[in-house]
Design a protein around this nucleic acid. Structure first.
Lengths: 126, 126
DNA sequence: CGTTGACTTTGAGTTAACTCTAAGTTGTAT
DNA sequence: ATACAACTTAGAGTTAACTCAAAGTCAACG
């Protein structure tokens, strides 16, 4: 009915071993299994994978994802804590974004100097 | 005349060991030394440290910084290559920034859902 | 002149996040 | 039925980037 680990692996370009690792480590909840114990990813399972991929791509730690899932499993009593956790992570990403913009500007400046050097045949200053 | 390793370490909040590591690995050029061989960071040395810190904070690999310095040392004949290297790194950062923005949006959405849940006492949907 | 504290080097150890191996089981195609 | 690929697990190995330890040198202060 759902997707095999291989299909999920290909769809999201995440190695099957990494998907198993995420499950075992508690980054995503236990995946639905067939009668014979084979992983059979439901839409919900897939949504967790997609979320993990997105968060990891932005640099959130495995640890914070594990902590989030732990709180999630505990139910409604952890809503405030979960919100706090996400806010903290959001703040980290905002800071990262600022750093990134700063560095991109520096690179742009250096690149334009090199472009100028290539046109005129020499660096304008060092 | 210049700064000691400790002063640079404190000014940029980089452990002294890491400064030595950067120098040894070729992330920054060999630092000016006193007659007795002690590091005595000149303004130029410090500019390299500052640059390394900025690039690393944005996520550039040590390897790419080493490669850049290698080209830099070779002189003007590598200007095109250096420009290419910086452009590639810039493109990586642009992509990272996009990913970051996407993830921040997702987090903002989730956070607003939790805030709503905290006000109304329950999650509006799952 | 001795000791203190910052410096030096080489090289081993740590951490996060995978990534792979080995050994074994199962579903499917001939 | 039999072979073969894809699955399973536990656990060891890898990589990047530090991070620390050990052993030794050196300038300056009391």
């Amino acid at each position: 009915m759902g997707l095999t680990i291989k299909q999920v692996s290909e769809k999201y370009n995440i190695p099957a071993n990494t998907l198993r690792y995420y499950e075992k480590a508690g980054v995503i909840p236990p995946v639905t299994r067939t009668a014979s114990g084979i992983r059979d990813y439901s839409e919900e399972d897939i949504a967790w994978v997609e979320n993990a991929k997105c968060m990891r791509a932005a640099g959130l730690s495995i640890e914070s994802l594990i902590e989030y899932l732990r709180l999630y499993k505990e139910g409604d009593s952890t809503i405030r804590e979960r919100k706090e956790l996400l806010s903290q992570q959001r703040d980290l990403l905002i800071a990262q974004k600022k750093q990134l913009e700063e560095t991109i500007n520096k690179l742009d400046y250096k690149i334009s100097r090199y472009e100028n050097a290539l046109k005129t045949g020499k660096l304008t200053w060092e």
